[in-house]
Structure formats: C-alpha cells, structure tokens
Design a binder for these strands. Sequence first.
DNA 1: GTATTTACGAACGCTCGCTCCCTATACTGT
DNA 2: ACAGTATAGGGAGCGAGCGTTCGTAAATAC
Lengths: 410, 410
Amino acid sequence: MGKGTVGGGGTTMLRRINVASVLDAVRRSAPAPLRVAELVERTGLARPTVAQAVDELLDAGWLQQHGPDSADRSLGRPAIRVSLRGRAAPVLGLDVGPHRVTVGVSDLAGRKLSLVRRSGPGWTAQELLGVIGEVINEALAEAEVPAEDIAAVVAASPGIVDEHTGRVQLVPSVPGWSAVDLIKHIRGLLDCPVMLDNDANLAALAIAAARGGTGTLLAVQWGERLGAGIVIDGRLHRGTGAAGEIGFIATDTDDVINPDDSRGPLERAVGSEAIAALGRQAALDNPRSRLAELGGEQLDTADVFAAAAERDPVAQAVVQQVARTFARALAPSVLVLDPTAVVIGGGVARAGAVLLDAISDQLRLLTLNHPKLELSALAEDAVVTGAMRMALDEVWQRKLPTPAMTSTTT
Amino acid sequence: MGKGTVGGGGTTMLRRINVASVLDAVRRSAPAPLRVAELVERTGLARPTVAQAVDELLDAGWLQQHGPDSADRSLGRPAIRVSLRGRAAPVLGLDVGPHRVTVGVSDLAGRKLSLVRRSGPGWTAQELLGVIGEVINEALAEAEVPAEDIAAVVAASPGIVDEHTGRVQLVPSVPGWSAVDLIKHIRGLLDCPVMLDNDANLAALAIAAARGGTGTLLAVQWGERLGAGIVIDGRLHRGTGAAGEIGFIATDTDDVINPDDSRGPLERAVGSEAIAALGRQAALDNPRSRLAELGGEQLDTADVFAAAAERDPVAQAVVQQVARTFARALAPSVLVLDPTAVVIGGGVARAGAVLLDAISDQLRLLTLNHPKLELSALAEDAVVTGAMRMALDEVWQRKLPTPAMTSTTT
DNA sequence: GTATTTACGAACGCTCGCTCCCTATACTGT
DNA sequence: ACAGTATAGGGAGCGAGCGTTCGTAAATAC
C-alpha cells in the first residue's frame, strides 16, 4: 500500500477494523468491564460481529472475562463481561534526572503497577546508566512483570532531545550525558520500542491527560531550569524539536542568548537558584525582616515563598518581581498560543497561591483571552506519568490496527 | 454509531472506504490525470475494485474521463485516464477588508477559476454587505459557475472571530461590523456551508499549503495591524479562538493592554502607521537626509524602506529600530513554537530584504533553532487563497467518507 | 413449577473484494 | 501488409465477512 494513501483493502481489513473498534470501545470504558450488549450498542456493530471480535481478543490475550458480578441484580441470563487485560502489554516510563531516577510500570489500561524512585548526589553518566538498570529491575519486580512482557518504553531526559538519533543536547549537571545513547542502552535491557523525550514535554502530556479532553495546554516546568510542554488536542507539539524552551526567553531589552551557556536568560532571572539569590540579597538589605529570620544564612527558595505567605513585605516584593518577570516573558507565548490553560509544575510550583496569584495578576494585564492558571496536581510524578502515557499511546497506535486514514489536508 | 467511537461497519462501508481511497488518490495527483493502472498501484486495491469505484465516481460526477492523449506514446491499448472534475463542487473564498473586498472561486482540484477584487474608500457595514453580494456575483459569472453549485464558502474578516457564532470582535475601521452576522448573510446568497475565520489564519493556511508538507509555520500578516496564523502539520491552530494575536504583545517593560483600544502595543510600535510616523520624525530631525528628500510632507512607510534600500543611514536606523522591536516581540513565540519557518506577509512585507535581514539578525540572537525567515510569495492574494483552501478542505472532509477513526489519545 | 426476561450460539443470505481468464487495441518487426 | 506482442479493460467464480433470524440456555418473578 502506498504510503500516505487512504487505507483500503478487503474484508480481512474490515474484520481488523471491527476488532479494533471493539477493543477501542473497551478501552474507553476502562476500567469498568463491559457486557457484550453494551459493546454492540457502542460500536454500532451486530452482535455476532462483536461476539466474534471478543472471542478473538480473548484468545489473543487483550481482553479478560469476568465472572457474573454478584451485585448484578438484573433479570435473565447473566451477561459475561469483559475488560482490558492490562498485563497484556505493560509499559515502562523512565524519568532520568541528575539527582534522581524514577521508573514507573503501567498496565495497558493506564493503571500504575509500580513506581520506584531513587535519589543520589550527582551521578556521572556511567553511574547513571547502572542506576537506571537497577531501578528498572526493581520496578519490574514490584509490578511482577517479566522484562520481556514490556511493550514500550519512554524515557525522559532534561535538555533538548533529538527525536530520531536519541541524542541529548544542552545537558548541565551530568558530565558526558550527551554522548550516551540512552535508547540503545535501554534496548539492551528491554527488547521493545524505546523512545526518548524532553521531560517538560512528558510532564505536559501527563497533565493534559489528567485534565482530559481537548484544548491547548501550556505546561511549565519551573525549577532550577525552566521548560514548557505544549499539548494541543492530546498531541504533543514539538516544533522542529526544541519547542517550549521558555528558559531562553530574554527578560531584559539587552538580553542575548549565549550559545556557550546551557542556561537561558529567563532561567537566570527566575530559576529557583535565582529566586533564592534574590531572597538572600533582600534579606541582607532588610536584616530585620521575617524573610531574614526564616532563612538565615542558608536562605532557600522555599523560604522566600514561606515568608511571602506570611505577608512579609520584603519577601512579597521579591515574589512580585519574580512573578512580573515571568509573566512578561510568558505573555507573548500566551497571546500567540492562546491556550486553554497554563499549568505550572516543578519545584517552584510548591510556592502555591502566593506566586500563582501574582503571576495571574500580571498576565491579566498582558493577554486578551486569559487562560486558566493552575498548579500541577501531579507534582513530582508528572514526568514519569507522562512517559508511561506516551508509551501507552505508542502501544495503542501500534496495536490498534487503525487503517491509517491519515487524510492530511495537504 | 456512538460518537467518538472508532468507525466500523459492514461491507457497504468498506466499499465507501475504497471509493474514497480511489478519489483521494486522484486528488493527490491533481491536476495530472491518472490511468486506472496507476490507481491500482497507488491504492493497493485490485483492478476490478478500482474500476468499479471509478465508474461510480464518474457517474456521481466527481471524476471526468479523458480521451487518449495524442502525446501518449505507449504500447498497447490506450488507457482511459481520469481526473477530478473540478466543477463538481467549486468553492468560494471571500476576503473582506475595510477598503477592499476580494472573492475567489476555485474548483475542487484547487484551480483558481476566477478572482475579483473591488476597492473602495471606507464602506459602512451596510454598504459592505451590498458590495460583497455584487463581487460574489461577478466572480461567479467570471468562473461560469452557477450559485447553487458552490459547495462551501469561507470568509475572512479582520478581528477576532468566534468560530461558532460567526461574530467578529475587535474590528476597527468598519462601523457596525461586529453586529453583522456575516455567515447568515452569505448563507442567504449561497445555500451551502459558510465558515468565517480570521484573515491572518487564512493567509497562514494558504502559505502553508504553498510551502507544502509538514512542519510548523508562523505566518505574520504585517500591515497597519499585526496578526499571525499558526499552521501545524497542515492544520490551523486556533487556541481558544484568538491565537496568533501578536499585535498585542507588549514591547515596553511597562506596556499594558488597553481593553478599550482595538490596537495592541506592538501594532502601535511597528504597524505601518507607526513606521511612517517614525520616518516622518526622523526626516524632521534630519532634513538633509535622503529619507526627507524621498518622502517630503506625505512620507509613507514605503519611503522609509526605499530610503533604507538606498543606504540612507537615517532610514536604516529607523528600519533597525523597527526590526529590533519586532524581533524582540516575536522571539519568545519562536522559542516556544519552534517553527520550521516564519513567513512575513502583508503590506510591510513589500519592504523586502532590507527589513527581513535586519529582523533575521536580531532573531538570531534570541532563539535557539533559527527558523527560516521568508517573505510571503502570495502577496495580497494570500487571504483569499487561504479562504478557498479552507473551503476545499471542508468539502473534502465532508465528501470523503472517511470512517472517522478519531482515535484521540484520551 | 411455569412464565418471562435476557443473553448466547448457530445457520442462512447478502455484499463486496480478489484472482483468473478473456477480449480489445495499438505499436513493432519481418 | 501481416503476424506478434505488450498493455489495458471487462466479466465470471471464489472466498471472506457482516447482518438478520431463529433456537437455546440460564436466571428471576409469580
């Protein structure tokens, strides 16, 4: 079949479409089991067709049969009910950071089977590879899933990721990391499709999935570094590969990107490190403030927000400045993207309402349609969750024999 | 069939899929006629299947049969060749501006059948409606298409367009325009689906189609007003409805959007009116410059760029300032979207390389991946072309019985 | 214990696409 | 000029799959 053409074929393809249709209907109602009669109604197909498809899917291991529920108080012969057999194709998500490795295993229905996290104080690239292997094995053991069952893996790495080669650019903190072919290494451990993506992208995917539905989402990961993921109607927007790099937005009228610096202007201005520095300076200038009391010598980003929450004017001024800088940097993108929601995650998101309200006030002055501004509910699990989500999508796209139909409006 | 479910059905649906497959193959090769053998190869279907589909499409009027080409120097029985019968479902595109109304009629294959433009010095809303009717009739007559044949209409209006109600907001220059239900009015003239969209969006669609293929395009319309359209892999990005409103990007660190002003900060800073004003001021300050010579009292935007092209340092300084302001405003969006290309159209685009190079230099300092920066090749026809294109897409989506397969990754 | 309700299972007929064969047409070589 | 060959269109038979219909099994209500 010529690539790019509308799919067409004989009756066997029709059968595959209908089997896929049934499987998709079951997936949509997950985790609730479905009766055959319900499948008939939802797919619009005839009962024999559905029955045959269900048999086939049961044989292939995609569905599992439930016994009649004792709570089923209906008349007549009890219906057999089927649901996704999650263990059919579990997936693995991997979040690699300089100080932390997280691995999650999820079943086909999106249920989390295990989640293992390990922290350490700055690994080298080689050490990191070893840790990744260990944590993967732990997560597999906890989920009671044999390694050969894993159907897809998605790994998250900071930095700009080249989709195709699997290389990573612009990575701080981990020496030698950009030379490592992570995809190849994982494929050595698990024999299945492995994909690599930016951590901000994956977090965005997870948040978009949690919010559900359509629309445009701009999900900011705000920690020491600043990145964002864009999800449009459930699909990730990658641009040419480096979309969402808000950390490099200029904040000053004379700012210029320095190619030798792995940090961008906005990161230097409002990254968590910068917020702490601003706080320390403010504390020095106002030694009698609540901020100075709270933080002392080791003043931290969290201290700034804590003091601001306690209405310390000095800390509030710092938060105001940070919020203003951030909002001014983000406003053009909000105007251009016009997203349904802007969600802020990452370490700085722990600041809570203090920061969010300040940003909201600033953003309101600079945009036409004001998107919902929220904090990420997923917190630190966002990236792994997104990785699992993307792996799931990959499996579904591969296994659901969708007859292409990519009628792109060329 | 439940909405949102994967399409499935019986053999008749299979036949429809295959007919659609054949039709799509013909469309893709338009305007070149195709032999049946070629269709067999491209669709992957069997010859009898293709033959039957072709017969059906010929009967339905979607295809037309060509006699054997005299230039056909092949062996054997001459093949019958078929191509799209464009007149089967012509579409109409409409570009409404305060001083100009343009109407284009296109056939199904995307061939332009007619293009009628009428200019006038500032119509009222009521007058405009009358002019629209006249120009539509002229265009239909020139294309020799009866009004009842038109299969879809897309109209472009400046301002922010509400996709659903068809109302227009934020329109300057045409008093009473936002109260008019343009969709309803056109549907009174032509009994077919009518859609309304932002002019920048439609121009972007046309430019993306001309460039072809996939990728992300940011198409800026730069005239008295500033807007942009975003096309991602052939699909328009609308956000919640106001995406691409770059005219409202703040340029100064104290800029704020004034809800009572229909113009945004960037428009006030680098709109064509502003460029002319900067030029006039520069000419006053430097009465002996080439800029002052060229422009005189009635100094125009074009004069500024003309003088700059002649290497007048005064004019060059103005262009530099404009380019710098524009690039600084656009850079965040370029970082976030990471587009394949940025294309500039509209009146200011006539400035040519002088402006483009200056912007390019500035943008290079502020972005990671540097997108291609180009001038629109379509010039003033971009909007109508885009309107026709969108109308075509609508017709194809409606007529091609694609069995949905909207397996959105929910 | 019987009637009723609900769902599963099997047989039949229909539509459609694929394979195979035959016919039609035009160029080419002797 | 005539036969051979290469290419394309047209038609019959086969197989696969879906939809409809009928019969049967299992559980509840009276």
